[in-house]
Design a protein around this nucleic acid. Structure first.
Length: 260
DNA sequence: CGACTTTGACCGGCGC
DNA sequence: GCGCCGGTCAAAGTCG
């Protein structure tokens, strides 16, 4: 004779599961937060280095009265210029960086310092949104695309992070930098350049399975498990609305991260 | 047919 | 003043 399991016991078991998943997700969130902090430090350091470099350039330009001479490569003082590094298939010649926004290409040039062509894009919402970006392959590593953003978007991203067309490419390449950008967007931090810089440089080959990507997949999987479990229980006519509300409130603080 | 890309021409800043 | 260079324009071509 199968022992009868009351709904009260079922709910208690469910709440234990939810608590365990909540703690697991809390750990994942902590790890993501730590990674984000580390990247902010790196970004600040990068900015310092740029300022230092500017100081050197000005010193090397000769007399302080010689204000007409200015190095072409001088780093602009403007601070809303950001760079992200995206690892792609080196055989793929396209200069497309999937960052969630729609862009219109308006030019392409071969520059002196890099034999790979540089593509110029402006936001498709122009002239409402005046953001521009330049994309060029890294001279040292052709598999890395360097995207330089100029300005801030005044609107939401067009593409969804959960969009199957964009996510499939990201998963197939197994690339850390491709994972980072959409992840940052999920945290309302679309251009966390230091994250992409740090991780693309620290993972030299694509065979490396990325722990960071695993965190997000686990988080997403756990979230889905909770949603499915709650959905199945709430469909049961014996499951009261009050219990459903109690369960729903216990997971209300879980932010959703789109699958990448 | 509209949206988007391609690509040669053009422009302005800079160094010599 | 001239030439180089990066950035932008705009006409023609392509695609869905």
């Amino acid at each position: 004779m199968e022992p009868h399991i009351s709904y009260k016991e079922k709910v208690e078991t469910l709440q234990e599961d939810l608590e365990r998943l909540r703690k697991e997700n809390e750990t994942l969130r902590f790890m993501l937060s730590a990674m984000n902090n580390k990247c902010n430090i790196l970004q600040a350091r990068l900015q310092e280095m740029k300022v230092e470099q500017m100081g050197i350039n000005l010193t090397q330009s000769g007399s302080i009265y010689d204000t007409k001479k200015r190095a072409r490569t001088e780093v602009p003082i403007q601070t809303n210029t950001r760079q992200i590094f995206v690892r792609t298939d080196s055989k793929d010649s396209s200069l497309i960086v999937k960052d969630g926004y729609q862009w219109r290409k308006y030019g392409q040039k071969v520059t002196k310092d890099n034999q790979s062509p540089r593509a110029y894009f402006r936001c498709s919402m122009a002239p409402t949104c005046r953001v521009k970006k330049k994309v060029q392959r890294c001279m040292e590593d052709k598999s890395i695309l360097v995207a330089t953003y100029d300005g801030e978007h005044n609107h939401e991203a067009h593409g969804s992070l959960g969009d199957s067309s964009s996510s499939s490419d990201i998963v197939n390449t197994g690339s850390i930098a491709n994972v980072i950008s959409p992840l940052c967007m999920a945290y309302n931090n679309p251009f966390q350049s230091a994250i992409a810089l740090d991780l693309s440089l620290s993972v030299p080959n694509q065979e490396n399975r990325i722990p960071f990507q695993n965190f997000v997949e686990d988080y997403h999987s756990n979230y889905n498990k909770i949603e499915e479990y709650v959905a199945s229980l709430t469909k049961d006519p014996n499951f009261t609305a009050a219990l459903a509300a109690a369960v729903a409130s216990s997971i209300a603080d879980q932010p959703k991260i789109s699958k990448i």
